[in-house]
Design a protein around this nucleic acid. Sequence first.
DNA 1: TCCTATAAATGGAACGTTCCAATAAATCAA
DNA 2: TTGATTTATTGGAACGTTCCATTTATAGGA
Lengths: 352, 352
Amino acid sequence: MASRAKATILDIAREAGVSKSTVSLVLQGSGLIRPETAVKVRKAIEDVGYVYNRGAANLRKAHSNVIGMVINDLTNPFFAELAVGMERVFQSAGIVPFIANTAENPVRQEEVLKSLMEQGVAGLIVSPARGTTPGAFRRLETAGVPVVFAMRRLPDSRIPVIAPDNHRGAWLAATHLIGKGHRRLAFFGGTSDLVVYQERLGGFREACDASGIARRDVLVVEGETSRRGGIACLETALALPEPPTAALCFNDAVAFGVMLALRKRGLEPGKDFAVVGFDDVVEAEHYMPALTSVSVDTPGLGERAAHVMLKMIQSRTTHAEDHIGAVNLVVRDSCGPDRRTQDRPAGIGDAA
Amino acid sequence: MASRAKATILDIAREAGVSKSTVSLVLQGSGLIRPETAVKVRKAIEDVGYVYNRGAANLRKAHSNVIGMVINDLTNPFFAELAVGMERVFQSAGIVPFIANTAENPVRQEEVLKSLMEQGVAGLIVSPARGTTPGAFRRLETAGVPVVFAMRRLPDSRIPVIAPDNHRGAWLAATHLIGKGHRRLAFFGGTSDLVVYQERLGGFREACDASGIARRDVLVVEGETSRRGGIACLETALALPEPPTAALCFNDAVAFGVMLALRKRGLEPGKDFAVVGFDDVVEAEHYMPALTSVSVDTPGLGERAAHVMLKMIQSRTTHAEDHIGAVNLVVRDSCGPDRRTQDRPAGIGDAA
DNA sequence: TCCTATAAATGGAACGTTCCAATAAATCAA
DNA sequence: TTGATTTATTGGAACGTTCCATTTATAGGA
């Protein structure tokens, strides 16, 4: 029924009896056209079922209004929370961010970035996949497209980063565990090729060292940053002759896996083994037992990243300051005291 | 450092000493050009740091290669699973789907659809937000853009739908509950403006009627399709003089909320109150207790939707057959028998 | 040798928009 | 009235590609 060939501004112009330039002006909301003319044009736009062709417009205009969001794991609810924060600020700027998933695969990431660039994005917010090569963002840089890293960073790059204070978060968590009387600790999940991993492990180690925990009493098990990874980590740890009694997990997904694996073995998370997560996703509060976790204000970081992006686009620069978000430990039920401490009658102020 | 103005095929042509047409041919992988020439051109492409301008190309070409995916709730892991299925098939077709979130907001959805259309998408896979007006997709239709609905449908539209057999799934779940001896049942969550809701509630009702459960013994509580909605539903139900002993929930998120609220009241899900979910997201298996849920093969539906989309684009049609996916009930630990039945010594084959 | 067939490469028009410079119409100052 | 100024509107060139119709080079057949 509808006219087959799609309508252009020329069709609108004919319909409204004005020139294409006038239509263009109306489309851009220019104040130069007479209100009555604008009304007439807008009516014609409706009548012909016009769809604006942004591709054509971008041919002339300097900037598009598309912002891409490249994330490494869509199934991790953490990133959904991050995305929601960003969307809040982009929405009020009249921008619709497009989300693309790389599924932690650098090759896929390459494709995604290429596709986004070809689309002419105005900017990119990226949480790089693990194993991303240093040169992966070279092209973006030479093209002058503003890029912001969220949550993760690349070893030597000059791209601005929005991330939580990983070092401090891990330090907080470890200190808490030690304060509960634990003396053999573990760090579960993640891989050393991630900068975040280094930071979190660093904070963890620092707290252990400061409290005089011997190096041989801290166990580090690398693994996938997922529930499955957590399960695997716990299995490895408990197979050891002298297993740890508490663990800080790389993120909440890992922690959930650990709790699951504990249950499968008939152990009670929090009582028989203490576990702390990282990120504090909304599920953490609702788990059984509720997960103690390092809260990073995820939507807040998303908002911040979006703001930085907007500012970069506006000032047509490709640089910006890093932003390290404050963290704090949310203590819930997943980490009680060390069993050995617990066996003795515990007095008030029973410190480690 | 990099040449400021971005390179075009003309720059490549100059660099390689050929015509722009030749470059274009190489870009499209045409077999018409001599291999040595192709190599020369490809080198030039690298040298000038060229980025393909898809907007310009789409001006001439009939179809773009962008497919949009519009989902109503990014934070529901269910949709992440759906997206993952789709991505699998699109990836092998060399397509990067762009995901956009509407957050269950029809106004936002309007913006998202508009933006995607302006971008010149080749097709759209949509899970419409609740409260979507019937005319919301009119524009898409007149523009001849292929659209597929996933999971949700609109009352009177002719747009093809990929969805699970909601009626049967709910029927299965209700029958299971009744078989466990429950006589006062509830349906929690969702709102009647959703077609899916009608279908699921319909299957539920049918099973109740068939088993001779009186209408006044089935309670229907509408609510948000989220954890929070589930909490609210349970509160309402338990405030009643004769509360139900079991509930089928609109989806797993609601079920999680219900279990949570039960715990808060000191009740044990599965023992004191039976709950069944819908969708069977991966978390269901890992919950405490593990959630009995209607499995719909989410990634499979995603794949199917993507295939249908691809076929529609290829055959440049805007119609396709609906696809109703098989479902089955995965029985786990969240629904034991009715307490009253349980109080009596239960014999083998203790049927309802 | 010339003609024809095939292979490879090319120029130019078109796609739908924006933006500049130019025009036309309306208003004002003298 | 005339010229200057302001307000609305407009034609045309440009943006970076594709694709058609040509041209040019290469080879084969007589």
